[in-house]
Computed example of a mutant assay.
Amino acid sequence: MVALLMVSVIKLKVVDPESASPSSADNIFLSRAQANEWKGWMQVAFVAYHYTNAQDVYVPVRWFVSAYVWLSGFGNGVYFWTSADFSFKRFAQQLWRINFLCLLLSLATATP
Rank of each mutant, 00 (worst) to 15 (best):
Y68D: 09
S8H: 10
F46V: 11
N36K: 06
A33V: 07
L95S: 05
R90K: 04
L101P: 08
A84Q: 10
V57T: 00
R32F: 12
F88Q: 11
E18I: 05
N99S: 12
K39V: 01
F86R: 14
K39F: 00
D56I: 01
I28Y: 12
A54S: 08
G75M: 15
R32C: 07
L104F: 04
F80N: 05
K39P: 00
S83V: 13
A92P: 02
S83H: 15
W81S: 14
Y49C: 11
V59S: 02
V69D: 01
P60T: 00
F46M: 15
Y68T: 08
K11C: 08
Y49N: 11
C102E: 11
S106H: 06
F29M: 08
Y68Q: 06
W41M: 05
S21T: 13
D16M: 09
K11T: 06
H50Q: 01
V69Y: 00
G77C: 09
S72V: 00
A48S: 09
G75C: 07
V57H: 01
K39R: 14
V78Y: 00
F74K: 08
H50T: 02
A67T: 03
F91H: 04
W96S: 14
L103C: 15
Y79A: 02
Y68C: 02
W38I: 07
S87P: 07
L103N: 13
S72N: 05
A35I: 03
I10P: 00
N27K: 12
W96R: 10
S87F: 09
S8V: 06
A54P: 04
L101M: 15
K13Q: 11
S31G: 14
